[in-house]
Computed example of a mutant assay.
Amino acid sequence: MATAKPSQPVTELPARYLTPNDLAELLSIPLETVYAWRKKRTGPLGFRIGKHLRYDPSAVHDWISNLTEHAA
């Protein structure tokens, strides 16, 4: 998966559920941050498939949109 450049907004997300590693890479943040968000319930909504954590790309997009709306 290609890494987004920090200066460019993410415009396209994969058409599959994202792993925590995918999310960290996509946002150019440490993996520990993704898990900290999950623990604090401040990040995008994730779900479990058995023991595996996944994120819906549309939920990630909505979460980012919500952040940018409140920052403006």
Rank of each mutant, 00 (worst) to 15 (best):
M1H: 03
A2M: 15
A2E: 12
A2I: 14
A2V: 01
T3S: 09
T3F: 01
T3G: 05
T3R: 02
A4R: 08
A4H: 07
A4L: 10
A4M: 00
A4T: 10
K5M: 09
K5Y: 03
P6D: 03
P6F: 05
S7K: 07
S7H: 09
S7T: 04
S7A: 11
Q8M: 14
Q8W: 04
Q8H: 08
V10D: 02
V10Q: 06
T11I: 12
E12I: 13
E12V: 15
E12R: 11
E12L: 15
L13P: 01
L13A: 06
L13K: 07
L13I: 03
P14H: 09
A15N: 05
R16M: 08
Y17A: 12
T19V: 02
P20T: 05
P20S: 06
N21Q: 14
N21P: 01
D22M: 03
L23F: 04
L23P: 04
L23C: 06
L23S: 06
L23W: 07
A24V: 02
E25Y: 05
E25F: 03
E25H: 08
E25P: 01
L27R: 00
L27A: 07
S28P: 02
I29T: 06
I29V: 15
I29G: 04
P30H: 10
L31I: 15
E32H: 09
E32R: 15
T33Q: 11
T33R: 09
T33N: 05
T33A: 11
V34E: 02
V34G: 02
Y35W: 13
Y35G: 06
Y35H: 14
Y35Q: 10
R38T: 07
R38I: 06
K40C: 09
K40P: 03
K40E: 08
K40G: 02
K40Q: 14
G43M: 08
G43E: 07
P44Y: 03
P44V: 00
P44Q: 06
P44E: 09
G46T: 00
F47H: 08
F47W: 04
F47G: 00
I49M: 12
G50A: 06
K51D: 00
K51V: 09
K51A: 08
H52M: 10
R54C: 11
R54T: 07
R54M: 06
R54V: 01
Y55H: 09
Y55F: 15
D56C: 11
D56V: 11
D56P: 05
D56K: 12
P57T: 00
S58T: 15
A59Q: 09
H61I: 07
H61A: 15
W63R: 04
I64P: 05
S65Y: 09
S65A: 13
S65N: 15
L67A: 08
T68P: 02
E69Q: 13
E69G: 00
H70Q: 14
H70T: 10
A71F: 14
A71Y: 10
A72C: 10
